[in-house]
């Protein structure tokens, strides 16, 4: 019983230490299998043997899943992420037209985009995940004070960072 409880406690501790749900779930299977294996290890009845080998199978599957989760990063949307470009392409009339902008607004935004790109060249605006709307807005406006509100909003969506509405 003591052996069982200590295995259980170790398993719970390690499971909660897993960085992501995927790893945690896979590791939980491994841990549950391990606990079961320990529980049934001294039971030599036919039922006990069945319990032992089933637990061992769950433990092995859980172990393989844990390794595989760590190996693959656990994400199922990895492809979409991989394909997300590192560089945000400049605005073009076609892209803006496809997104509902009229010609005059599109031309104004493209002009701002070109000025903005020039202004940050060699002095790249770094947007960290921890940046909030204020710092992004402030960052853009410091580097490019003439940016219109529409341009700041548009850039924020393209950069994937929220800007206060």
């Amino acid at each position: 019983m003591k052996k069982f409880i200590s295995t259980l406690l170790i398993a719970i501790t390690l499971t909660t230490a897993m960085p992501r749900r995927s790893e945690a779930m896979a590791f939980l299977s491994f841990a549950a299998g391990a606990v079961g294996t320990v529980w049934f290890s001294d039971d030599h009845t036919p039922g006990g043997r069945l319990g032992f080998w089933s637990s061992a199978a769950v433990m092995t599957a859980g172990f393989l899943a844990t390794v595989s989760c760590f190996w693959t990063g656990g994400g199922t949307c990895a492809l979409a992420k991989e394909e997300t470009p590192r560089n945000i392409p400049g605005l073009t009339p076609e892209y803006l037209a496809e997104n509902g902008y009229d010609g005059a607004t599109a031309a104004a935004l493209i002009a701002q985009d070109q000025t903005f790109i020039e202004s940050i060249r060699g002095n790249l605006l770094v947007v960290e995940p921890s940046d909030n709307s204020q710092t992004l807005g402030a960052g853009i406006r410091t580097k490019f004070p003439a940016a219109s509100e529409e341009y700041v909003q548009l850039l924020a969506v393209r950069l994937g960072v929220p800007v206060a509405q």
Partner: peptide, 17 residues
């Protein structure tokens, strides 16, 4: 869905051009 970086807070819809 596009997240510009993993920790990015905004996930927008994306399309292929």
């Amino acid at each position: 869905s596009l997240a510009i970086k993993d920790g990015g807070k905004v996930i927008s819809l994306g399309y292929y051009r």
